[in-house]
Design a protein around this nucleic acid. Structure first.
Lengths: 69, 69
DNA sequence: AGGGGGTGACAAGCATGCTTTACATGTGAG
DNA sequence: CTCACATGTAAAGCATGCTTGTCACCCCCT
């Protein structure tokens, strides 16, 4: 799942750790999402969308590598 | 995670099984989402949004029962 | 030389999404 | 009554999200 989390985070001058605290997840989770080692859960995607004030579909897009599209 | 999947599905006259086929998941998965026994993954939420042509935030909303909001 | 912040990654372990299989209920048609 | 279909739920098992802990590399500062 491609995403713009790093872009949105660094535009706000935050570290991965700071974003993790703001979202209630670990630094490693933020890192893994940014490096696309895994796809966040729907609740975490909502938390990201709320935090950055963007729609989920603006932040994530399917990369043609998943059966769910 | 509250959702409008049942509403959107029945408005289109589809069974849970038919929706499952359209989404590439099992009938039980559709049922469990509609009865809110669990929250779908982000890829499945995307598939639902595409199928029903609604934004994810229009279809799901957090129910104050999750730390991720 | 040493310390600090930021990042990338891996491992073990627990929680949850999703599958198949299976059983129960209700409804409408023959 | 029997059949078909839609729905609700449960259990076992596999896949994945997320945690803590740890190691490594970079850059900057002292």
């Amino acid at each position: 799942m491609r995403n713009r989390v790093r872009e949105l985070r660094s535009a706000r001058g935050l570290s991965q750790g700071q974003l993790g605290v703001a979202l209630g997840v670990s630094r490693q989770t933020v890192n893994a999402i940014e490096t696309e080692r895994y796809t966040p859960s729907l609740p975490l995607a909502f938390a990201l969308g709320r935090f950055f004030e963007v729609r989920i579909e603006e932040m994530f897009h399917v990369d043609d590598d998943s059966r769910d599209g």
